[in-house]
């Protein structure tokens, strides 16, 4: 094998073992490649031939399985952090947009002839609170994660924690959205179609929750090492 291929082969093997957001992965691999070429250059300066210099650099960098585990932890953590930030921002925004839409196009819910039953109000309050509770949980998780990153807690563990919080948070949000839609359909399905903009906003809220569920699932996949 030509000497120029030793580093390339190592980086390719590392690449194959990693799953996660491409920009972060490409950045990590570019830095690893740079470091290996720097190390190989240092060994060449000490008199080693090109291929031997690259083999020494690769050996010093560490076994690809060991290094891949550490890098995968970083990728999982990066994805988990990004997902929690999305949860923190998107869910309250979707909730506020829906409420503004409803207030503008329909007005207050209590304009209806008959007041809704208690069970419906419970579901509605749960859905109203869930956006803020879930966003608060995401903020708390990000702050705690930042503190834990200063301890000896590994990036793999941090990534798993982020994934668990993301799954629970998105699950609660999705449950709230589905519950209020189902409850409204059961109580009076016509209310779901009172106003096209509000119906569209409801569809957007559901789509946002489903999209976040996909992201949360990926958090778990990427933090699995």
């Amino acid at each position: 094998m030509a000497g120029a291929g030793v580093i390339d082969e190592y980086v390719t093997a590392l690449d194959r073992r990693l799953r996660g957001p491409d920009p972060v992965k490409d950045d990590l691999l570019a830095e690893a490649r740079d470091s290996l070429h720097d190390a190989a250059a240092a060994h060449r300066d000490r008199g080693l031939a090109e291929e031997d210099a690259q083999r020494r650099a690769v050996a010093e960098f560490g076994p690809v399985t060991t290094i891949a585990r550490e890098y995968q932890g970083l990728l999982g953590l990066a994805y988990g952090t990004r997902t929690l930030r999305s949860v923190m921002l998107v869910l309250p925004l979707a909730y506020v947009m829906w409420e503004l839409n409803r207030a503008f196009w329909i007005g207050a819910w209590d304009d209806f002839d008959a007041p809704p039953p208690d069970w419906y109000l419970t579901v509605a309050r749960f859905n109203d609170a869930s956006a803020w509770l879930v966003a608060g949980a995401a903020v708390l998780a990000l702050l705690v994660g930042r503190r834990l990153a200063r301890t000896r807690v590994s990036t793999v563990t941090l990534a798993r924690l982020a994934g668990v919080v993301a799954v629970v948070a998105v699950g609660v949000s999705l449950l709230g959205t589905v519950a209020i839609l189902a409850a409204t359909a059961y109580l009076d399905a016509a209310r779901l179609f009172l106003s096209l903009p509000v119906t569209a906003a409801s569809a957007v809220s559901l789509a946002v929750a489903l999209r976040l569920a996909v992201l949360a699932r990926r958090c778990v996949v990427f933090s699995s090492v």
Partner: peptide, 18 residues
């Protein structure tokens, strides 16, 4: 230490804001 472990450690310190 394997030099490849230094980079994840640096990124973790970055996550920690250090």
């Amino acid at each position: 230490l394997p030099t490849g472990t230094v980079y994840p450690a640096l990124r973790r310190l970055e996550t920690a804001g250090l």
